[in-house]
Amino acid sequence: MSAPTESEQRLSYETRDRLYQVALYGSAALFTFIILFPIYWMVQNAFTDSQAVITEFAWFPSPETVTLENFSVLTAGAVPTYVINTIVVTIGTIVLVVAVSLVAGYGMARFRFKYKESFAQFLLLGYMFSPIVLGLPLYLIWSETGLLNARIGLVIALSAISMPFAVWLMWKYIQTIPESMEESAWIAGASRWRTFWDVVVPQTKPAIVACALFAFAIAWNDFTFAQILLPSQDSTTFAPGIMRLIDQGGYTSWGDIMAVSFLMTIPPLLFAYFLQEYLLKGFEVRTR
C-alpha cells in the first residue's frame, strides 16, 4: 500500500487523477464482467439449440443455432409444476410477511407496553435462525401436523425467518410518520382501525415494498426448507425439484435448464433495476 502512495506523490496531480479514474472504472468493468458473464452465458445458451449447446462451443450466439425451442420445457414434464409452486409459495410468503409485519410494526411504534424492548431483542434473535437447524426438527413436527408436503407449511416457515427484518423495518418506518396525522384523523371521528387503513398504511408504501422485496428474495431463493419440508417430488418447488431431476439423471439438457433458469431470473433482474432504492433503504434499516 505504501509503495504506490509514494510513487503517486511524485506524479503530477493530473496523472494521479487519471490513474485513479482508470483504477476506478477498471474495477467497475471487472466486477460487472464477473457478475454479468455467468448471466450472459445462461441467456446465450437459453436461446441456443439444445443440441448445439453440448456439441458446438461458441462465445456468441449465431443465427443458425438461435431458437426459442428450449422454452418448451415450461409446457411439459414436472418443471412447470415446480415453477408454479415456487410462485405460489413466494406470493403467499410476501402476503403473510407484509400483513403480519405491518400490524406488528404499527403496534410496536404506537402502543406502549411492558417488555417491548425485550421483545425487540427476541426479534433480532431471528437473524440467527438457520434453515438447516430449524428444518431438521421441523420435518417431524410438520409431518405430525400435516404440514409436510403442503405449500402452506413452507410459507409459514419462510415467513418466520423473514420476520426479524420485516418487523424491524416496519417499526422503524412507522416511527417516522408523525403521530399527529393519526390524531388528526381520530379527532375527525375515524376509528383507530380506520385510521390505520386510511392514514398509516398508504404512507408505509415504501416500507411495504422493501418488506415484500426481502420476503421475495427469501422465498424465491429458498432451497433448504423446501428440500426438507416438501420431500414429495410432485409438491416441491423449483430449486429442490430441478436438483432432484438432475440427480436422477433424468435431466441433462443444458439448453432447457438454462432456459428455465433464465425465466426464473427475470423477476429478480427487474426488481434489481427498478426497485433498488427500496432495497437500499431496507438494508439501511437492517444495519441498525
Partner: peptide
Amino acid sequence: VAFTAYLVPTVIVVLIALF
C-alpha cells in the same frame, strides 16, 4: 448489477456453475 447477484436464486447460481 450488484443487486442482481444478490437476488438471483442460489439454485440458478448453482445450475449455471454446474453448466
